[in-house]
Amino acid sequence: MADLVIEREVLIEAPAEVVWRTITEPDQMSLWFADRVELAVEPGAHGYMQFGDQGGPVVVETVDPPARFSFRWNHPRGEEPVAGNSMLVEFTLTPEGAERTRLRVTESGHELRAWPDAEKQRYADGHRGGWAGYLDRLAAVAERRPG
C-alpha cells in the first residue's frame, strides 16, 4: 500500500495512444520532463534522467500501453529502488471518448513498512485525507502562528 504524496491530473484533447507516446518516448520526455532521458520503456529497465546539472537513476516498473506507466526514483545511491526506499511515479491514462484522455499522475513513496497489516489498515483508515488533507492542516497551522 503506497502512501499518497501528490496526485495531479489534466484533460487532453488527444487519444490515449498519442498521450502514451508523449509520456513514454525518451525524445518526447526530454521536452516536458527531464533535460536528458535515457530509458528503455520495459518493466525492470534501468535508465537515467538529467535535470540541469543534477541527475539520477530511474527504474521502470509498469508498462501497460496505453493505460499505465510507472517508474521509481529518488532511491539511495547504490541501492535497488523498492517500495520503502524510493518514490513511485505512476501515470494513468483514461480515455474519455475517442479523442480525449484524462492523464493522472501520482507520486508516492516511503510506504508504511515493518508494520503488521492490521495496524497499516487501522492507520490508513484514520488517514483517508492523505497528503492533500495534511497540506491543508499545515497551511492552517502556518496561518494561525503569530507573526
Binding site: 495531479r8 484533460l11 484533447e13 487519444p15 498521450v19 507516446r21 508523449t22
Partner: peptide, 12 residues
C-alpha cells in the same frame, strides 16, 4: 502535465 497536454494535442 500542461506541457504534455500541449505536446500531445499538437501531435494529434
Amino acid at each position: 502535465l500542461a506541457t504534455v497536454k500541449r505536446l500531445a494535442e499538437t501531435a494529434h
